[in-house]
Amino acid sequence: MRGRRRQIVFGALGLAVVVVTFAFVLPKIANYGDVWDVVKTLDTAWLLALLAAVVINIVTFAPPWMVALPGLRFRQALPFTQASTAFTYIAPGGGIVGMAGSYGLLRAWGFGSREVARAVTLTGVWNQLANLLLPVVAVLLLSIEHQSDAFLSTVAVVGAVVFSIAVCLLALVLWSDGLARGVGEAVEAATNRVLRIVRKGPLTGWPERLVAFRRSTVDLIRRRWAWLTLAALLGNITVFAVLLVCIRAVGIGASELTWVEAFAGWSLARALQLIPLTPGGVGPVELGMTGILVGFGGANVEVVAAVLLYRAFTILPTLLLGLATIGAWRWLGPGRPREGVDAAAGNPPGG
C-alpha cells in the first residue's frame, strides 16, 4: 500500500512538472503562436536535412547492441533498439525501464540470460557514462571559447565525480574475482542499510553475481571496448546533429549561437534525462535546454521552436517505430534455436 502511494505521488509530481513546463513556463519564454509561425515556414531544404539527420540517428541505435551481443544482426538490432527505447518514453524511470524492457525483449527472442544481461549492462553503462561525461566536454569547449555557464559547470563537476566513481567501481569489478566479490559485498551491505530504513527486504547474492558478471564480461570488453565506445560516441553525435540542424533550420545562425554553445545546451539536456522523474525527461529537458540556449544569446522564439522540433523528431519517430515493433515482436524474431540445443552443441546462446 505504501509503495503504491509512493508511485501515485511520484506520477503526480511528474505530471505536474510536464504541465507547468508546457502550460506555464515555455509560453512565458515564447508565445506558441509565434513558435508555430517559425515552424510552418521552414525551408524545404532544411526539412530534408532534418529528415536525413533523423534517419541517420535511428540507424546508429543498432551498432552498440551488435557489439555487446554477438549474434544480433542489424536487421534485428534496428527494430529492437526502437522498441527498447520506446519503453523509456511511455513510463517514468528512464534508463532503468529501458534496460528492463531490453532484457525482456531479447529473452523473448531466445538469447541466453547471461549474454542478454551482459549486453544490457554494457550498453547501459557505456551510454550513462557518456551522458555524465558530455557536460565535462562541453565546459572544456566553452573554456576554449572563453565562455562559461555556472549551472552547466555545476552539472559537469557532478558528472565528472559520478563518472570517476563509476569507472573506478567498474574497474574494480573487472580486475579480479576477489575484488568483484568484495565490491559486491560492500554494495550489498550499503544497499541493505538503506532498505532497512524503508523496511524492505535485504538483497542477497550480489558478490557471486558480480563474480559471474566479471567472468562473462571481461573477455568481451577486452576484445570490443574500442568498438563499443566508438558506437556509443557515434550514436550521441548523431543525436546532437539533429539538434544542430533544428537550430539552423529555424534561422539561428552561427553568429547568434555557435555549435559549441548548442553542444553545451544539448549536453545539459542529456544529463537531465538521467533524472527518472518523467518519461524521456519530458519537461526538465526542454526547460534546461531552452534556458541555456537563450542564455547564450539565442532568440526566445527561435530557440523554443528548435528545442520543440528537436524533441519531436528524436522522440516521436522512435516511439512510433518502437510501439509498432512491440506489437509485431513475435513475427520479428530471428528464429534462434532453443538454449538447450545451443548448450549441447557447445555454442553459447547469443554467440
Rank of each mutant, 00 (worst) to 15 (best):
G340Q: 01
N236A: 14
L174R: 08
G253P: 00
V18G: 01
V139N: 10
D149N: 15
V157R: 11
L140C: 03
S113P: 03
L195V: 00
V285H: 09
L13T: 05
A344H: 10
A254M: 11
R199V: 00
T191R: 15
P317M: 05
V187Q: 02
V54P: 01
G94P: 02
L244W: 14
R75M: 06
A186L: 11
L172T: 11
G351A: 05
A269H: 10
I144A: 14
I96G: 06
T204A: 12
V35D: 10
L323S: 05
A45P: 02
A166H: 09
S216T: 00
D342M: 09
L134E: 08
K200W: 07
W65M: 04
D43P: 01
L15A: 07
V20E: 02
F263P: 00
W331V: 00
T60G: 08
R2F: 02
G3P: 01
L13F: 12
T278Q: 04
W259K: 06
R270Y: 05
V161G: 03
V116Y: 02
G93E: 04
G3A: 00
S148W: 10
G335S: 08
F61R: 15
L203P: 13
S84W: 14
A45E: 02
A91S: 09
I56L: 15
V304Q: 10
T121Y: 14
A150R: 15
F87D: 07
Q7K: 08
A312K: 06
G93R: 14
G104Y: 08
P92Q: 14
P63E: 09
L268W: 06
A108T: 02
V136Q: 03
K40R: 09
A190K: 12
V158I: 12
G335M: 06
G159S: 04
I8W: 14
E188Y: 13
A262E: 04
G281C: 10
K200L: 10
G281D: 03
G104A: 08
L105R: 13
A16W: 02
P79F: 10
G251A: 02
V38M: 06
N31T: 04
I221R: 07
G288K: 10
L26A: 05
V157T: 04
T81W: 15
R215I: 00
D34N: 14
R338F: 00
W36F: 05
L234Y: 13
T290R: 14
Q147A: 03
R4S: 03
G124Q: 03
G94V: 10
A249C: 07
R193V: 12
A232R: 15
G298T: 07
G71Q: 09
V54Q: 08
V198R: 15
I29V: 05
L268Y: 05
A16R: 04
A226H: 13
S102Q: 08
Q76D: 12
A12H: 11
G350C: 02
S153G: 12
P279T: 00
V198Y: 12
A232Q: 15
L50I: 00
L243V: 02
R6A: 07
F87L: 15
A52E: 11
R224E: 06
V18F: 06
G95N: 15
P202Y: 14
L122N: 03
Q82D: 03
R5Y: 09
G98M: 11
T290K: 15
F74H: 12
D177A: 04
T217Q: 05
S164D: 02
G184A: 04
A180Q: 07
A119I: 01
D342G: 01
V158K: 05
A254Q: 12
L308Y: 13
W225I: 00
G93I: 08
R209H: 08
A312N: 09
T238A: 15
L228H: 10
A119R: 12
